[in-house]
Amino acid sequence: MIKIEELEFYYKRKSELFQHLNVDLNEGKVYGILGHNGAGKTTLLKLIAGLLFPKSGKCSVNGFVPKERNPYFLQEIFYIPEEFEFPSTTIAKYIKTHSGFYPKFDMNIMDDLLNEFELSVSRKIHNLSFGQKKKLLIAFAVSTNCKILLMDEPTNGLDIPSKSKFRKVIASYFNDDRLFIISTHQVRDLDNILDTIIVIEKGEVIFNQTIEEIQNTLSFQKVKNLSEMDHVLFSEKEFGGFSVLAESKDFGETKIDIELLYKAINSNKETINEAFKNEHNN
């Protein structure tokens, strides 16, 4: 559904962000894009949405070239930016004016999500808090039934109950025809909703594995002493012991700690990727 080949992009010629970026993203999956600030997460989303144009290379989304901003392409993609500003109007008027652009917009879903997020349609948008505005945008985006939903730091500004509701909404309204991409550095907020984890560093994809592969390859444990474990790939000291990431030789399936995985990749990506290669060869 999204194919990026040898993509080059820079804001200033001297500091290239992407040099030879290659990524394939398919429908039926929720991708989590992780990375430090300035790694290129938001830029990648904007390139996919057609908000930025590649300097060279190919970017194909759902059979379209994003930079052309074909209306049929735009009907099937929705981008939730980290920061945004709504026009000054009521929620009801906003929905009425904008929903027509999306042929598959479902008003029942919109009503359900507004209830879920405790938002009344009669409220003026400029009176809402940032978190409420974000919930409105998430609700609208999900209701469009677009094939591709791009979310840049969607949980920023949401309170703890809303973060949980966000996860529930994503899980409920996702289906095999859709592709969700969530870019974030708050990895804990994405617990249990991701299918694939992609880590970007300095404009390069340094890790790209499905949750299934991660579960088959890695084991996430908490131990009192590091000597209790073999095949340790990464460990982090915490209260009362260590959080450990190890090759899952003998431990079977464990619950993925995305934050620990992310730290391990940042600490030593070669070792982590090597573990996946070994698992694949076995």
């Binding site: 904007k46 949405a49 981008y79 026009p87 904008h98």
Partner: peptide, 18 residues
């Protein structure tokens, strides 16, 4: 002209000609 609004405008499903 507004960074916080321009993506809404550019991504509204209409052609540039429209």
């Amino acid at each position: 002209r507004d960074k916080l609004k321009s993506h809404f405008y550019l991504l509204t499903p209409g052609s540039n000609f429209e």
